[in-house]
Write a protein that binds this DNA or RNA. Structure first.
Lengths: 214, 214, 214, 214
DNA sequence: TATGAATGAGTATTCATTCAT
DNA sequence: AATGAATGAATACTCATTCAT
């Protein structure tokens, strides 16, 4: 029957819309939470404030997240996912080991500049609660660093980089890029505009190459 | 005695107090607050606990500090002062430019390991807190970095380090040491014990030398 | 699946449900509610948990019961009915007056042990709840005591029990059985396992017989 | 100096008054808590409501009691103390074993009638939290029952009461008095005025004597 | 008939702060 | 100089209930 069909279509549409709304709200909560977490830190962060920010009652948040920790965990892992994907894309962009080194480096930098809040969250705050199980649909944090390690391992294998324990070398390289990025993000001591930031990072990448390449 | 209500707990602590009454109370508060601050961090820190620690009522603290923020500010700048003095001592410990580089580097590292919360506050958290006027008798944080710049300037002048804008080079060198230190402090991604931390830092110092020395 | 929010937990439970859909939902709710009520008691009882138990949303319960109190009232009177029927069955189990006395006594005891929360509610808590109109299809609680009075009246008539006002004597006999049962249920002063409880109750029944039989 | 003396006296008086006020408030909290606990039960009881009842903020309660449990525990043990003292006084009132039995029995009854709330609390509510350590200045609950046991033991020794395990016999005797008292207090099934209550209890005492004396 | 989304009121507890003394 | 009493605002979290669909 036509009517039935129309009804069915309506129902489907309405269902879809509600699902969309649900996703939207969930995303909205995550967004607000991210912002607040960044502003207030782990302890200063409160569900109440998140609720106020999004214009819902605190109770509503419990419809989307089990509790405060669950929400925070999701906030953090949302960022990790994006981060890992960016690095991976950088890695895949070329076959040349040095180019790859630079590509991953710039991917790292660009992610941090585009997502300062998440970056801070991931690498500059106390990370105790990262030890917990990742929430559903997320991989362990450590995965993202596999990319950096592969870059180094490739470099060594190609005879371009100094030999040594891959894990340790990766950590040091990472420390170099992280160091300059985090100083930029902290902002209180090194104050630069985006153009200066790019230059600074470029110089750091080259210095790092000098230190770890043959 | 009844089950320890806050009141009774305070009374107990007050006994302990009389014995130390000679020491200046203001200093005592600062000391206790610093300890708590290092243990619990910025948000975990509470006036009540400070009061309990020193065996006075919370009210008493208000006789010496305007409010919680005032106390914290003093605690924090106390640390900054120590930081500056440590770097300065490293600088003065030798006349050899390379030795000096290493000495300042290790002073930096040692301060961070001994005062992780202070370090985090200074370099890893958003700096609003630092924008405020330093309390009486304290210099701005930024002063500490003069030391690093002098190290680099000395190195260039002595023909040991690559030429370039001193400010920029200092920032990059600083980024290197800060990078590895902050990864260690964050702890969730690089997990090392103190001995491994030392080794890691030592390698980073050498790599930094390779990158910035001739 | 995400970490079990309340919503997702409900969804899971709803699977289980379809399999039993034949049984009347109202009965299912009552059953689940009774179980929870016995487990958690009057205050620990929550609609949410009932809903989760039966695999429906809390909202659904409102289609069958006006509100929480209405549901509870029905749960409670369901128990009262059972209590009356148990005593009655004890009464009918024999024609010998003394045997009858014992049979009703043990029925009383067994009900209390099997339905402690109901028992508490009926006899050990303030009776406001019981003052309300019984829900449709239920008789007032007090009816159950007619059985005890009949036991005593029978005993007197048969010349086995001491003469006196039946109502008063019944109350005293009832006090005896209730006394020991309620001490056992309260649990904090008399701690016995089920076997010891039986023995204690048996002794009490005999003592009561000594006190009220000729 | 006269002035100094006057000042001193004033200070003392003010100190005393404040201590009195403190005691008053503590007592006020206990009283309000008792009432509320009785009305709403263990789970329904809330610090907020206690606070409202006494006209202070909830926070204030924490100045006098460690937490909710501490308050409740004190409420209950306050009653136990009074109860134990009453029974003890009854015990000491005479040397005759039978008179003693009656004296303690009536002390029991009188306490319950005069302090129904505490009585209900002690013997008719769920007693899980009585397992905890008694608060400072209170003896374990069980002490009160020592009196009953002594009454029975005395009776047996004097050859007036039936032999048997003292503990068990005491429990049964206790069950008898408790049974009638608690039915009276519950009120919904046995409705009596004070005079009738006395008569009922007197009959119960005699019946109990018949059951347990030779 | 049943549900999903949302809420408002309530819970215990902790904290910084004030004020009279 | 120091304290005791008290408060108001904040926290995470749970619950009964409603309403549109």
């Amino acid at each position: 029957m036509t009517i039935a069909t129309r009804t069915t279509r309506l129902k489907e549409a309405s269902k879809k819309r509600r699902e969309q709304q649900k996703t939207d709200l969930r995303a909205g909560i995550l967004e607000a939470a991210t912002k607040l977490f960044e502003e207030k830190g782990y302890e200063g962060f409160s569900l109440r404030q998140v609720a106020e920010e999004i214009g819902y009652t605190p109770t509503t948040i419990y419809l989307y997240f089990k509790d405060k920790d669950d929400l925070l965990l999701n906030v953090v892992y949302e960022g990790f996912k994006l981060f890992g994907e960016s690095l991976e894309a950088g890695y895949r962009s070329t076959d040349d080991v040095l180019e790859r080194f630079r590509a991953v480096g710039w991917a790292y930098f660009n992610f941090a500049m585009a997502n300062p809040i998440h970056y801070r969250l991931m690498f500059m705050q106390r990370g105790e609660f990262l030890q917990e199980e990742p929430p559903e649909g997320h991989s362990p944090v450590i995965d993202s660093f596999g990319v950096i390690q592969r870059v180094i391992a490739d470099g060594i294998e190609a005879g371009v980089m100094r030999r040594g324990d891959v894990r340790t070398l990766s950590t040091l390289v990472w420390a170099n890029v992280h160091g300059v990025v985090s100083l930029i993000l902290t902002g209180s001591h090194v104050q630069v505009n985006m153009e200066e930031a790019r230059q600074l990072f470029g110089m750091q990448l080259e210095a790092t190459k000098r230190a770890f390449c043959i």
